[in-house]
Every structure is written in structure tokens, then in C-alpha cells.
Design a protein around this nucleic acid. Structure first.
Lengths: 218, 218
DNA sequence: GGCCCGGCTGAGCGGACCCTGAGAGACCGC
DNA sequence: GCGGTCTCTCAGGGTCCGCTCAGCCGGGCC
């Protein structure tokens, strides 16, 4: 779990880094809003800890900018102790939780854990054609419900064919989209179609002489 | 909104009871740490107000015991003005907010409302995949019901894999989210997968050659 | 039947990929 | 300090994969 801490109190940041590292988090830190925002945008973080009071750009601003750029990483805001209006503001802006300083480290970790458990990204549906299925996420291929072990290249070929199921796909097209070699020898395709047939059954891929290959019914 | 006030100053408790009732809270009270703890554990309160100085068991103790029993009801601590137990001490106990006596009643109510409004961090459900479980709260890992000792990094790796169970997770992704090294050498991942396998069984993590690793079946 | 052409396949090589043992460096508790 | 643990690096080696090559097969056409 990668967490970004944006705070300008070096002591607190150091403490958090040590504590969170011990808890198994991978910790990055930024000391002002501007760089924190930049890091949050293109860094792939699982959760952010953002102080409200920050140089160059305050915490609200950072969160607002993030959400405006379609970054929905969960944010835990740290607000100064005085001023309860901070809290409502933070939640309105798009933060997911807040803690007032001084806060308990135990509570912080518990909250972070709760935030990280975000709704699992909806899995793209499995590709399917007849008795064949291919799950893009797990790279698992089945024939008649039975799992079949394929190599990376074989899977890539089958995936391309499945994504164009019912259509005749030319060898040159497959060469371009599936195989890395700049070469033009379509024999590689033939070889790999052979591998697929051997593992998935003779009729898994049908040859259209002079045109290419087809998977699935028309 | 049910609030439990744990304080031994009868005058203060009476004032709080009257004031908070007028504000719409349902108020219970305890006068020492022991009974306060007992009430907090099985009473369903939305928020607790706990004084630091208490007979039979001090405030820090109470909160620590609560958190240890997985009770995460938000706690607002009342600390004495001159407390040698400074706020810094409470930082590792598990309270959510602090007020120093004497305090303004208006501020207290505002803080309580803020605490209650906040989404309570529920105990995260255990991650599970096949014979493996990982409790995010206690960092405890079991295989076939047997507890397995893992280091921090090993746990972090397993947690990430479990949170994406069924999906093939690439080494680079694991590097980014689990390991702190800015480097790009995926060998670390391989090494740690090796450690996990040694402790959890050879089949705990399956490698998908050319793609990454996967935990659990789809 | 003979020939041609597109497709199929067994064999094999170089290399990518992955695993593992050993060990250096950091950190921590005593 | 000092021993132990943990994290990460490094190098070596084994395995499997991707691709090429060459030869074979079978259908279509004369």
C-alpha cells in the first residue's frame, strides 16, 4: 500500500514515515501543496494524507484540484485543532476522512486501512466465443469450463482473435498486433495457431484459405 | 446520538448531562475508568467523552483497552490544563480529539457533532483467498487456520495480492505499491514471492510467466 | 496425373524469464 | 557496541518460450 504524506512539519512527517513503514506501508512525502499535488496526480498512490495548512497551496486546494483532474485516490485530511469549520469544509471538498491534530497514530492507521479498502474495480467481462472464454484480468483461458494453460504469446493471439470474433483476421494483421517481430513472415502466425489448436482443440480456430483465421461463429 | 461521559467531577458531569441533553444527545455517565470501560465496550455509543484523570483506571488506559478490544467508537479526551501528560502522550493511545479544561461548551458540542458525523472506521473484514487469510487490523496471516509469522514486507506483499485476488498483478505494479525502493529491478518481487512460498506453501502464489503473479482462483 | 501454392508441423536454438543461495547494509533491542 | 532480524542486491543456473527453418501435406488447376 503506497501512501503519500503531504505536510510541512518535518518532525511529524518523519514520525509518520517511520511508523507507517513499520506498519507495512510504502511512504512518500511532500512538504508543500504544489509538489504534493504533482506527486499525487501521476504517482499511483493507494491513499493520501494531506494537511490543511500547507505552503504554496493549502490542503483543500490540493484535494479540489485532484478531483477536478479525475484523481479519486482516497484522502485523509489532517486539520489543525482549532476551528471546527475546517472539518465540514474538508469533507465538502472531497476528502474521505479527517483527523484533528494532535491525533492518535493508532487511529490514523485504522482509518487509512479503512480507506484503502476501496470498492474493487469492476472487472471487465470475460471474452467469450462458443466454448472458449478468456478473462483479461486473470489471463485465464477455459475450454468447456476447463482451464487451459497458455503461454503469454498464445494468450495474446487468442485474445485478439476473440476481440474480433466472427470476423476473418488476416495473418499480416495478426503479425502487426500480436507479434513483436518487425518481420513479415506470416509463418509465426501459423505456428501459433497450431499451438492454440493443439491446446484448445482442432476446431477452435478455423482457417479461411487465402484470407486468414476466424474464431467463433459468423 | 448516544454519548457516554466518563468523568469523576460530579459537577461537570451534571452540567454536561443537562447541556448535552438539551442539544439532543442521550447521555450516560460513569464516574471511574473501570465502569466507563465496561459500559463503553458493550454499550452502543456513538461517541465517548473521557477525562484523562480518573479513579481506578485513567483515560489513556481506558482508550487503549477499548481499541485493543476492537471498539472504535470515536473518543474525545478531556485533559487537565496543566497536564504533565501532555497531548503528545495521548498521541499513541487512540483518541480522536482532545480538549483541555476548561473548555467552552459550544466548542465541545461542535467537536462531538464533528466526530459523530465522521464515517466510523469499521473493522476491516479479513482478506481471504482459498486457505489463506489476512486480518488487516492485526496483520495476522493464517494458512489452513494455522497462524504464520511474516515480516512486515512479506505481509504487505501478500496484502496487495489478496486485495487483487484472482487478478494477475504485474511485478512493476507490485514494485510501485509494495516496495519502497525507487529502483525498477523486479528481482525484489521475485525474492519476496519466494519467501512467501517458503512460508505459505509452494502453491500459495502462482506465477504467470511473462505477466506477473496471482493469488487465489478466479 | 503432375504441378503449384498456401498452410501445417516437428525440430532446434538463442534468449528471456524466473528462482534461489549468499551476503551486504540498515535497523533494533539488549 | 553487538548479535539478530529484516530488506534488498547480486550473480548463477535452470527452465520454458518465442521464433526460425525446412520439409511435408493437401487442394486446385492444367
Amino acid at each position: 500500500m503506497r501512501v503519500l504524506v503531504v505536510d510541512d512539519e518535518v518532525g511529524l512527517v518523519r514520525a509518520l514515515r517511520r511508523g507507517l513503514t513499520a506498519e507495512g506501508f510504502a511512504v512518500d512525502a511532500a512538504h508543500d501543496g504544489e509538489t504534493g499535488l504533482a506527486m499525487a496526480v501521476d504517482g499511483e498512490y493507494d491513499v493520501l494524507v494531506v494537511d490543511v495548512m500547507l505552503p504554496r497551496r493549502n490542503g483543500y486546494d490540493v484535494v479540489t484540484a485532484l478531483r477536478a483532474q479525475d484523481v479519486w485516490t482516497p484522502v485523509l485530511m489532517l486539520s489543525a485543532k482549532d476551528g471546527e469549520h475546517d472539518v465540514a469544509d474538508g469533507l465538502d471538498v472531497g476528502a474521505d476522512d479527517y483527523l484533528t491534530k494532535p491525533f492518535s497514530f493508532v487511529v490514523l492507521v485504522a482509518r487509512l486501512r479503512a480507506l484503502v479498502r476501496r470498492p474493487v474495480a469492476p472487472r471487465p467481462a470475460a471474452l467469450r466465443a462458443g466454448a472458449l472464454t478468456l478473462d483479461p484480468a486473470s489471463r485465464e483461458v477455459t475450454r468447456d469450463g476447463r482451464v487451459v494453460e497458455l503461454t503469454v504469446r498464445e494468450t495474446a493471439l487468442l485474445e485478439y482473435l476473440l476481440r474480433h470474433a466472427g470476423r476473418v483476421v488476416g495473418k499480416i494483421e495478426l503479425l502487426d498486433h500480436v507479434f513483436d517481430t518487425g518481420g513479415e513472415d506470416p509463418n509465426v502466425v501459423e505456428v501459433y495457431v497450431g499451438y492454440l489448436r493443439r491446446k484448445l482443440g482442432r476446431d477452435a480456430v478455423v482457417t479461411v484459405r487465402g484470407a486468414g483465421y476466424r474464431v467463433g461463429t459468423v
